[in-house]
Nucleic acid binder design. Sequence first.
DNA 1: ACCATAGGCAAGCATCCACTTGCCCGTCAA
DNA 2: TTGACGGGCAAGTGGATGCTTGCCTATGGT
Lengths: 97, 97
Amino acid sequence: MLAYGGRVGDVYKALADRTRRALLDELLERDEQTLFELCSKLAMKHDLTPTRQAVSQHLEVLEGAGLVRSVRRGRYKFHTIDTTPLSQISERWPSKS
Amino acid sequence: MLAYGGRVGDVYKALADRTRRALLDELLERDEQTLFELCSKLAMKHDLTPTRQAVSQHLEVLEGAGLVRSVRRGRYKFHTIDTTPLSQISERWPSKS
DNA sequence: ACCATAGGCAAGCATCCACTTGCCCGTCAA
DNA sequence: TTGACGGGCAAGTGGATGCTTGCCTATGGT
């Protein structure tokens, strides 16, 4: 239970940044991507060229919001999207009847 | 067409603040509220006590994101929620099949 | 006309946050 | 074992942003 933590506000803050949204876009296209793969995708497809550390910090924020999960295998860390926390948004402010 | 402007990123930034989310909560409960009404609601129900100008600026941001519409009647300005821009979130990152 | 009320404008301030830089820790191959 | 590679840690910096303060405009009641 409480799969993605109690601080729901973190989800909104996580979505507030353009680079993080692009990361979610890439992870939606393909799961299990490493930090380096995501860095190159950002540069090629989104014209975003932050440093590797910046991207790493963004992934931390996304993980703190429960939007990304990660597993370490060997020296690689694979990242996977989890859209579950997004459902609270449309639940909180549904379309008016 | 283009009901809520072209800068979709503004929607995410608008949601990133706790006070603005509380404002949306209040407007969802009752439409056509004035700045003063919303100020007192924030203080009583959400333990938020920003100044009137701060709330006014928040409403500007929400309006810029298309989440709030406003009409002026006499010396009153009534604010109304519009949840339409929120649909793009679940459309952009749907639940994985 | 007067004044209280609802709201807006603009500048200043303080905090937060995205980003960088430099160094360090594990893992794996030669 | 050595070195390259994937990734992490920590401090510092600049810009964005939430908030305040002071003053102004306009509407409406008396």
